[in-house]
Design a binder for these strands. Sequence first.
RNA 1: GGCCCCGUCGUCUAGCGGUCUAGGACUCCGCCCUUUCACGGCGGCAACACGGGUUCGAGUCCCGUCGGGGUCACCA
Length: 520
Amino acid sequence: MSVRTRFAPSPTGYLHIGGVRTALFNWLFARGQGGQFLLRIDDTDAGRNVDAALQPILDGFRWLGIDWDEGPDVGGDCGPYFQSQRGELYNAAVQQLLDIGAAYRDFATTEEIAAEREAAEKAGASFRYSRRWRAESDADAARFAAEGRQSVVRLAMPDEGEIVIDDLVRGQVKFDWSREQDLVIQRADGSPIYHLASVVDDHAMHISHVIRAEEHLSNTPRQIFIAQQLGYELPKFAHLPFVAEPGSKNKLSKRKLDKYLKNRDFAAINDHGQQIAQKLGLSTSAETFNPVIVDFYEQVGYLPEGLLNYLLLLGWSLDDSTEDFTRAEMIEKFTIERVTKAPASFDPKKLMAFQDRTMQQLPIKQKVSRCVDFLQQAGWVATPPPCDIARYVTQVVEAIGDRLKVFGDILEFEEFFVADDELVYDEKAFEKRIAKPERAIELLREYRESLATCDEFDAASLDKHLHDFVEQRRIGMGDIIHALRVAVTGTAQGCGMFETLAILGRDRCLRRIDRVLNLA
RNA sequence: GGCCCCGUCGUCUAGCGGUCUAGGACUCCGCCCUUUCACGGCGGCAACACGGGUUCGAGUCCCGUCGGGGUCACCA
């Protein structure tokens, strides 16, 4: 039997980082086994705006390069792939369960159920519905209906015996049937509940392996019950440890953003991203733009390979030392056997380390091309760029080197893209390196004259030139180079001094130094 | 609270009874490189939750305790 896995997101408007990890494992497993990976949209409870809420999810997967063989936009033999369009299937399944007595119509109100639950809790007993408003016959149903009651369909769970789940990551897990609730599978409005829809679809779509997060483990008995009653062959189950919050073992969720922002590392990559987003003119509402959401990484200019590589190692490892995987290697090496059992917390710093490594391996041409995209988006270069811009940006990117962690970082090197008279000077740096040192202005003036007449303007020559300058005056390099850097770039830190001067070229350097001399 | 899952450095993990004075990675801390920043190089700090068994021998198997988490919806 061929391997078929699926990821079934609800259209929530964003792709959660934990969801991606689950999807990744499903995808990797399917690809590695020569099987199929499908995307199904669990919108049984969704409002009308499904399209808008789905798009970011699809976009996220596309960006990551996680492709699906069947699902939205690509179709497939088992469609439709939206649960909202599969109503008849669920109705038929519900009817079948009703017919064989595995489910019943129930007319209890939510208040009545709540009251029973409360009473049970008070008595210290575990709650199980009394089935008091269960319709045993059509006459019962008519009578309840006459009282103005509405009905749902509930599962008639067995009250004895146990169910053993053979989980691919957790081994055998046992549950007592008697503790399972008579779960609702169809709402009063006739719409199906997730568990029912999920089981029906997994069967109809020939899913061989249900790989999902651990929080579904305790849902599994009821789903198995449904499947068994419907006569379905059971898929294999694999319950992955969930992705936990930074610095804790709690499940990572989008709701607790405020808490995560108090985590230093999380706050750091968030702030870094926010700054880039601002320069790009993006909406930076924390609700829709933060490191829990995949879109954040795309917008800021992370590489999907680095993110995937990091996520791969969140709950899986190959051996005692291998950390870097290409896409092909991930597919080749991934196995469910080596999935970990304990939850893994999301570590922003380590993610950045993977991003960094991935970025440094990227060929310069690609780096430049993506950087140009970001520069255009920020409005710093024309769209489309004149061909010499590509050459110019190549020089800049080479000079920046490892300092470029994500593509958006190119926007931190404003000095290369701003007009001379618009260069902003960092106040502290200006004070410390130009205003305060006694001879800074004097030296800068002298150096300016010297620079105006130096023959060659490449980095190596400029290097020698400055060294000669320093030597002649019997001063230290530190007496001039810092002031020079601030004068020319506006900041105290940046690329190599001589590369910077060379890229800027003589005219711009002179104009910027003049500006400082006039200011002082 | 019931049920279920989990428990090796701060974090991600290796470890499937002896080769573990517990290995790798990220972080952190030194030193080197560099008169910026970043990278890089070298070195260092740092863990088997606890208690009982089983065994010649336990991080590895069993039991218990403790701790953490998940789940108990007409959400998915």
